[in-house]
Amino acid sequence: MPETAIELVGVNKWYGTFHVLKDINLTVGTGQKVVICGPSGSGKSTVVRCINRLEEHQKGQILVDGVELTNDAASVNRIRSEVGMVFQQFNLFPHLTVLDNLTLGPIKARGMTKKEAEERARHYLERVHIPDQAEKRPGQLSGGQQQRVAIARSLCMEPKVLLFDEPTSALDPEMISEVLDVMVDLANEGMTMVVVTHEMGFARKVADNMIFMDAGEIVEHGPPEEFFGAPRSERCQKFLSQILQH
């Protein structure tokens, strides 16, 4: 077992009286790739959003790189600086050029000079295969290109962990693979990743650990061979048969 990057211990969360997360226990080792799937409303996005404090959990512990996530602003900032996030809706800043989207964080949050930040931004744009779009605005790019810019934006902060919240769900089918290719490259380079997705081909290729959630619980988890080969729970079997049908 490699060093632990993320650890969730008995995490619970309620929206009012609605119990969204029920006793979530999850360990992600450094360099590991965890793929979370499950029906909508199962709490899978919420788990990811709790890891960088976009949502607050009410009970249990979340540790990132050994630091516990509490209400203390310093701990939240510390963890956010190590955790990058890629959203379903990209959430690029539409009023800024691609380059400015990438350099805003490094310049304002990290105090880098403009020149350093731009160098870094161009380096990561190269890695997501769109070095020539730096001066454009997000609205001028295709969905797939926008999501790759969003990935590059996260990488510019050089995080230890990258979270993906359904990164391909808002994309047209022909653009999904260009985003997944970038994610596979990242996985192969050893990035620690937690990915919420229904792309099971991607999951088989990169996942070290598969997680199936339903109704706020982790129903099943295990290495992909086991998970896809012989799912134990009925709910997971049913879910997999539904999404793998096509």
Binding site: L54, G84, G105, K108, A109, R153, S154
Partner: peptide, 18 residues
């Protein structure tokens, strides 16, 4: 302004006022 904008700003380390 969609909530995703301030969430994205948070995840790249910007403070509230930034």
């Amino acid at each position: 302004i969609p909530k995703g904008q301030s969430e994205a700003a948070q995840t790249i380390g910007l403070t509230y006022s930034q």
